[in-house]
């Protein structure tokens, strides 16, 4: 009789372990689900917006002409605190940025930053000079 009772308890313990294992697995799976894709959508939209607004307001062209990032710096500083961005200006054919603009606390670009580019031209001595503005953005940690 005693041994029979032992066998039943062992089965029950085993079943309980299986149930708990399922619960733990479900919890860990659900915890891993995040809406981080949402941050990417926000970054993407906001980065393209930034470049578009900068170009339409003439600030990109002005920075390239004057070789001065102060206008872009102040623009970036006025954006929401959680949005970090850095803009590098490349003259056509050059791989070295001629101007770098960024928020003061957003100098180090993380590897998972979002990259957006905008091509524009300015007239220097009646000759068109082409530039690429490369914006890297990320959410401040």
């Amino acid at each position: 009789m005693n041994s029979k009772a032992f066998v039943i308890s062992f089965d029950a313990v085993l079943a309980l372990l299986v149930v708990f294992a399922f619960l733990v697995a479900s919890f860990s799976l659900i915890s891993r689900v995040s809406d981080s894709g949402f941050n990417e959508s926000f970054l993407q939209a906001f980065s393209f917006d930034s470049l578009k607004v900068l170009e339409a307001s003439g600030k990109l062209q002005q920075a390239a002409l004057e070789n001065d990032s102060s206008g872009i710096d102040s623009f970036l500083n006025s954006l929401p605190y959680y949005y970090c961005a850095r803009i590098d200006f490349f003259e056509q054919g050059s791989s070295v940025p001629s101007i770098i603009a960024s928020k003061p606390n957003c100098r180090n670009v993380p590897s998972n930053s979002f990259l957006a580019r905008r091509f524009f031209a300015v007239s220097i001595n009646s000759e068109p000079v082409f530039y690429t503005a490369e914006l890297k953005s990320w959410i401040a940690g």
């Binding site: 930034s50 578009k52 339409a56």
Partner: peptide, 14 residues
């Protein structure tokens, strides 16, 4: 709260 940048009367707005 979602935010986008846009131009209004040629001025950047949030």
């Amino acid at each position: 709260k979602a935010s986008r940048l846009a131009l209004l009367n040629n001025e950047a707005v949030l």
